[in-house]
Design a protein around this nucleic acid. Structure first.
Lengths: 223, 223
DNA sequence: GTCTATACGGAGATAGAC
DNA sequence: GTCTATCTCCGTATAGAC
């Protein structure tokens, strides 16, 4: 910081004039990172703008210049990291219909998805959104949209396509996918929702996900 | 209140001397009701002791005499109403093994259970516990214990017994029950977790629960 | 046990120099 | 755009009379 006010120079003595908007963007990112950490650790109401200021290293006035108030900062930060934290099995979901071994493909897909959703930071974000959904219904709708349109959507398409090809027999593909997700990812997720400190046991996770996929196939595999 | 300080009398002029500890208990209950409403509406941090005082009608000092501080009040109130809000299908879960029509019994049981868990006040309580589980891990453990020991427990017993009688074939009854719950109750619960305003459609609920039970039986009914 | 009145700190947000 | 210093209010919790 002092370097800037003292006309910083590079190693050859040439003054370095940072693009002002660039410096602003860097500070903005510092604020976002600090705010995300504070909100995730404390929740919305208990998080303090003073603490965010301290964590970020910038002054409080700068925070307010950038984001206006606490609500807007919260929505910008949480809304910004939600998409990355829900990023599920879209790419592989679309390719599911062409997988040679459907069972193995489903197991791999749900297992990887569960591993992402069970990450402590993702679980903390999920708990935060759930706890604040009355105050910020937008975030609930966003989570719902990201989960169902982005993640479940391709799976529903794949199940429908597999039905056309005679490999699955699911009269209601949308409900079938909800059940598949609930019976695989949903089971360990529920445990970690109420017991955050629980560690993820990879072997146990594979066992649960495998059993869930078998449950799904026992009902919906074409006879 | 004035009646007490003015030596209240009944309709015959006989002075009414309320048992002091009884008056205290009544006030205590007023505080508990007011605190529950405030905490459920605002969350822990945003709830104010001033608001709880106003809602209850007693003075702030009385609240602190009874409960010490905000944390203790929160734990007492939420911990006190949790058991009533998780009260699931225990009585019928135990009788499940003797039901003449297993499928119908499972559908009725999960449908009624879902109807309870989807009640707006129960959902709000659930969101509150989830959102505060980092600050109050006791509540998470209590919820987990109430759900698994009280509700899932009898179901696991019933599934085990049905296995002995050759009606079900579930190698891991605990996991099977988790899957049953996830595929029935869990599906609409997930929707209402992120979209509190959604109304419960009875017909849709029956459809989802029925499909979940059929999913369960397709895998675990003895052949 | 219950009240009124108050102490004390920290919250969100802003003014004004640079 | 960024900082320092400050404003104002509301938070939890308590003191002391009754």
């Amino acid at each position: 910081m002092e370097a800037e006010t003292a006309h910083a120079t590079d190693e050859y003595g040439i003054p370095v004039i940072p693009c002002p908007s660039d410096a602003a963007r860097r500070k903005r990112q510092l604020i976002i990172d600090a705010a995300a950490a504070e909100f995730l650790a404390e929740g919305y109401s208990a998080a303090s703008m003073d603490a965010i200021t301290s964590r970020s290293g910038v002054s409080k006035a700068t925070v307010y210049k950038h984001f206006g108030n606490k609500e807007r900062l919260f929505l910008a930060v949480i809304g910004g990291i939600l998409p990355g934290s829900c990023a599920g099995p879209e790419p592989r979901g679309a390719a599911l219909a062409d997988a040679p071994d459907l069972r193995a493909a489903l197991i791999g897909l749900t297992r990887d998805w569960a591993a992402l959703l069970l990450r402590p930071d993702v679980m903390a974000l999920r708990r935060l959104v759930i706890g604040e959904v009355d105050r910020f219904p937008q975030l609930g709708r966003l989570w719902y949209r990201l989960t169902y349109d982005v993640n479940n959507g391709p799976l529903v398409e794949a199940v429908t396509e597999l039905g056309r090809r005679g490999k699955l027999d699911a009269p209601d593909p949308g409900l079938a996918v909800q059940q598949l997700v609930a019976a695989t990812v949903g089971v360990p997720q529920l445990v970690h929702t109420f017991a955050p400190a629980t560690e993820v046991d990879e072997a146990e996770l594979t066992r649960v996900v495998t059993s869930g996929v078998d449950l799904f196939l026992a009902r919906y595999a074409a006879s």
